[in-house]
Design a protein around this nucleic acid. Structure first.
Lengths: 215, 215
DNA sequence: TGTAACAGACTGAACGGTCTGTTTGTAGCA
DNA sequence: TGCTACAAACAGACCGTTCAGTCTGTTACA
């Protein structure tokens, strides 16, 4: 077998992911990606059939990592016996990782993919939709378990589960708008406290951090 | 004076707004805009200096309408004396208009603008940032008034105010992903109930609608 | 008759994609 | 251990198209 091409392929995907999240898909040219990856047209079209193919591969990889995070949070809270408390700690898991997340990426690939209808049409967005459903399904399970002991209406469990995705994506856009990455952590904190309230979990009154406030 | 050019200019802006929200800015060509507006290159460059100039004009007009909605909701709830109740009714104002909003547009121009770094750099996103701050400021005023009679921490008023923008934009993306516009109404409902809970407002148990559920 | 409003052919640059050739690592064999 | 054969991996010149933007006119109206 010749030399391992997956290394270069990953470099292309890394470069493309950064550029697409930063600039959008249509606004990112293949020449830019190739230059950033330190490779060539020949290498690119050896690994990908077209620009659309790149979009699909990129999104697939991103979704896999994203679902990995979901299951990491589920595993990290698996030991909690009180289901309502588990929901709160589930959100806190992401809250704790928020700053690191925002230092790694300035926005979310989902935003870029869902913005451009061409990517919705060519099937790239389908895999994002699957991810959205997976999040909803898993969180709805947590909420359903927690609903038994609270006044939570089972009819709104799905919408409440979707609100986690909504908070993430909305917060990404808020961060882009203000240029302040700390909003992600703050918005996840809002989500956690609102959910804790709805589930009747008493949160310890701690030093909640604000964004851009005076010291 | 020659014939009124503002009519054609508005037609160009209308066409551009629809195309940019649907496909993104970079993915929308001027030829597409011109064809959709039923006009010509000459007319376009008579009214706009460049594609970037179009983006700025488009965003400015969109923001003006958006802030108009904000103040419409403030005015519609001005008569309510209980500040906590006013917050809840403020959100319900948008909840009531959600279906109409989503039938008029499949997403939000803010998403398209904030996705592309070129629009952040060239000043187009600045006016969006101003809008975000206006929303935060006005809602924070409502929340501060309401906080007096509830256990709401004043330190989280800004983050809570931002959560309205976050919910809107996140819900737009959720709708794009699932192709189900009813999510907007549902997510605003979630926001309202969570805020009502945080402010200690008892909501009447009514027929809350779900999304995509069996009849 | 002057000027704002428009029409549309045209241009140079940038785009996605192709093509031809070169390098690289390995398997098969003597 | 060296040689051959071969296919994957890569490089970059090249091509047709599309893009944003220009330029030369024409029309409508005060």
């Amino acid at each position: 077998m010749p030399k391992d091409g997956t290394v270069n392929r990953e470099r292309i995907l890394d470069a493309a992911q950064h550029l697409v999240i930063e600039n959008g898909f249509a606004a990112t040219s293949l020449d830019q990606v190739i230059r950033a990856a330190g490779t060539s047209k020949g290498a690119f079209f050896h690994h990908f059939d077209s620009k659309g193919d790149l979009a699909r591969a990129l999104t697939q990889r991103y979704v896999t990592a994203d679902i990995g995070q979901l299951h990491a949070a589920l595993a990290a809270t698996d030991h909690l016996t009180d289901p309502a408390e588990r929901v709160v700690e589930f959100v806190r898991f992401f809250e704790d990782g928020a700053d690191e997340l925002m230092s790694a990426q300035s926005s979310c690939l989902y935003v870029a993919v869902l913005t451009e209808q061409q990517l919705v049409t060519n099937g790239t967005a389908d895999v994002v939709t699957q991810a959205v459903k997976e999040w909803r399904c898993e969180i709805a399970r947590l909420l359903t378990a927690a609903a038994e002991r609270s006044e939570l209406d089972l009819g709104e469990v799905d919408a409440l589960a979707d609100h986690v995705f909504v908070t993430f994506e909305g917060a990404f856009l808020l961060c882009r708008s203000t240029g302040e990455p700390a909003h992600m952590r703050a918005q996840l904190g809002v989500l956690r406290r609102l959910l804790a309230g709805a589930l009747g979990v008493s949160t310890p009154i701690g030093a909640e951090n604000s964004v851009g406030g005076a010291a």
